[in-house]
Design a protein around this nucleic acid. Structure first.
Length: 596
DNA sequence: CTAGGGTTAG
């Protein structure tokens, strides 16, 4: 800073500043006052209005990217003083807009440039593409892509990587792959962008395949960024074996000096069902733990229903002088939720504001769930009414979900009405309300809800489960008969149904309504996807080994009950990862203690 | 030296 001030003084003293000095000065500018001085100099020397002036462009960029509230505006007023803005000047503005709170404005600027025949270069495209990614503008991405081709920038490796990354981010994986395949020159970032794009775009299998291909046939050694994409894919799939291999690679290559990589390893182990392994990595970490490291570990214990351990980690982070943020509180609340620690959760929630973290919608959702599941529905509803923000769809769904557990008709009706008014067309919402009525044997109301569903053409997310056996993913939908061994699976299910009756099993009738619209409702319950996956696990793995199943939605109550009995009768540990947490079934009971 | 790929979340 002392150097900079000296430089500024020197520049002010001299009537003529050399271009080199100006360049040095503008690059070191951080304070608004320095930028103003450079601007003053440009104005007095007349350079401001000239055709081409890199220092001026750099200054516009500094203004445009500044986090200080008034400076981006300054960039625009400076730009307007230029008679003939260069491409660099346009790019500076574009870059600033792309990173601003209105990235769509960057897209408008780009179109204005094209309309007025201003020359664009690869950077122009790069910045506007960033904006496309932020507003998820697929159509615009296509348009920029065609400009890239038209202008002859298609061979630019950096721009190609940006393009494929943006395609992946706006959800067009096909185009992302196509850009990758057609790139004449690829470098490590190109591979990384596609691996991460596949992992985040529901193509986790393909991400892992590409990771293997990269190791086998490319010249590049996977680096920190590569393994992050690959680990994220393993987390999504729950692919422990692949995850362990990547972890070994990370240790071999000493990539675990990077805290972000360590965080992803912890997360991977937790999401693959092995919270102990996650904790070993957390505990023996060599680099400095970041806030996210702590949050990931709290969340990991929370997901597995280890409430006390999660809260212990949460406490420890305070002792390590790491200040909990909104995610930390959410993770801790989530832990209380999954472990039924109601009082701890409420205390935590109430302590947030005094610790400088304002509860957001997710915190409210979590505490409403916590109170609701504990049967304190009125308190939960009171919190919803007293919230400083407008409750969203998920919050009402949470409240409605807890009403089902306790058969609370009044609050269920309120929540349902709100959901309908908000235009929610979710099958599950109707089913929940109908279940509440069914619990009170109010069949007329049940029929009314069912009719409403028919008339509205409600959307239903299809449930599926999968299980990996010998490296092959076996995926099942409800009542699925597409598996090569489906007959054996259904025979096994019949056997299970017969054997659990000895333990007093009666089909959970209220859950039957989950399958409204199916031909055979009772059978639909018997053939839920998680039951199919467990049955397949039983017939395809050796006796006594653990069975791991993944479900895209939450586990159904009937399946939960059946799988508990299966774990006892067949003497198997069965681990089910549902949409939000793990259930570990052993000897007839579940790690969630029937609370989830 | 004006660009590209990255971790936690009801």
């Amino acid at each position: 800073m002392a150097n900079l001030n000296k430089l500024v003084q020197k520049c002010n003293a001299a009537s003529q500043m050399s271009i080199a000095n100006l360049n040095r000065l503008v690059k070191k500018c951080s304070a608004a006052s320095h930028m103003k001085q450079v601007q003053a100099h440009l104005t007095t020397t007349g350079r401001l209005r000239s055709r081409f002036c890199p220092v001026r462009s750099k200054l516009i960029e500094l203004y445009a990217l500044s986090p200080l509230p008034h400076l981006p505006h300054q960039a625009h007023s400076l730009f307007r003083q230029i008679d003939n803005p260069s491409t660099n000047d346009f790019n500076a503005i574009l870059r600033g807009l792309a990173a601003s709170s209105q990235p769509a404005a960057a897209i408008s600027w780009f179109h204005r440039m094209l309309r007025r025949s201003h020359k664009i270069d690869a950077l122009t495209c790069s910045f506007v593409l960033k904006a496309c990614a932020r507003v998820l503008a697929w159509q615009e991405t296509l348009q920029v892509h065609s400009q890239v081709v038209r202008c002859g920038f298609a061979a630019d490796a950096l721009l190609g990587t940006t393009l494929l990354d943006v395609y992946a981010k706006v959800g067009d994986i096909g185009s992302a792959r196509m850009v990758f395949d057609e790139m004449p020159v690829r470098d490590i970032a190109s591979w990384n962008a596609l691996i991460a794009g596949l992992a985040q775009g529901n193509f986790a299998r393909e991400a892992i395949e590409l990771f293997k291909r990269m190791r086998a046939e490319s010249l590049f050694r996977p680096n920190e960024v590569t393994v992050l994409g690959a680990l994220s894919a393993c987390s999504h799939l729950g692919a422990l074996k692949e995850g362990e291999k990547i972890h070994q690679y990370i240790k071999d290559e000493k990539l675990d000096a990077n805290v972000i990589v360590c965080n992803a390893v912890i997360d991977m182990y937790a999401k693959c069902g092995f919270v102990d392994k996650a904790f070993v990595v957390f505990d023996s970490i060599k680099c400095k733990k970041s806030l996210i490291t702590w949050n990931t570990m709290v969340m990991a214990f929370a997901m597995h229903g280890h409430g006390a351990k999660a809260l212990e980690i949460f406490e420890q982070m305070g002792q390590a002088y790491v200040k909990p943020d909104a995610v930390s509180y959410l993770a801790a609340l989530c832990a209380c939720n999954h472990a039924g620690l109601v009082d701890d959760g409420v205390r935590l929630f109430n302590s947030m504001s005094e610790n400088g973290v304002n509860p957001n919608m997710k915190h409210y959702g979590s505490v409403v769930d916590l109170l609701g599941r504990a049967g304190r529905l009125q308190e939960a509803y009171d919190i919803v009414k007293s919230m400083p923000m407008v409750p969203d769809v998920v919050l009402w769904q949470t409240l409605l979900g807890t009403c089902q557990i306790y058969g609370n008709v009044e609050i269920a009706e309120i929540a349902s009405r709100e959901l309908v008014e908000m235009g929610s067309n979710n099958c599950g919402d109707f089913v929940l309300l109908s279940n509440v009525y069914a619990a009170h044997e109010r069949w007329k109301d049940v029929r009314r809800v069912r009719d409403a569903m028919k008339n509205r053409d409600v959307k239903k997310v299809p449930a599926f489960s999968y299980i990996e056996v010998d490296g092959v993913i076996n995926k099942f939908f409800t009542g699925d008969k597409s598996h090569a061994r489906w007959r054996e699976i259904y025979e096994k299910l019949d056997e299970i149904r017969f054997r659990i009756k000895e333990y007093g099993y009666v089909a959970g009738t209220s859950y039957v309504l989950h399958d409204i619209g199916e031909e055979d409702k009772e059978n639909a319950l018997c053939y839920h996807s998680e039951k199919l996956a467990v049955a397949f696990g039983l017939i395809s793995t050796s006796e006594g080994t653990s069975i791991q199943v993944f479900k895209n939605l939450r586990i159904c109550g009937d399946c939960h009950f059946v799988i508990k009995l299966v774990s006892k009768i067949y003497n198997r540990e069965i681990i089910v990862r549902d949409r939000v947490r793990f259930h570990r079934f052993e000897e007839g009971s579940c790690s969630c203690k029937d609370y989830w």
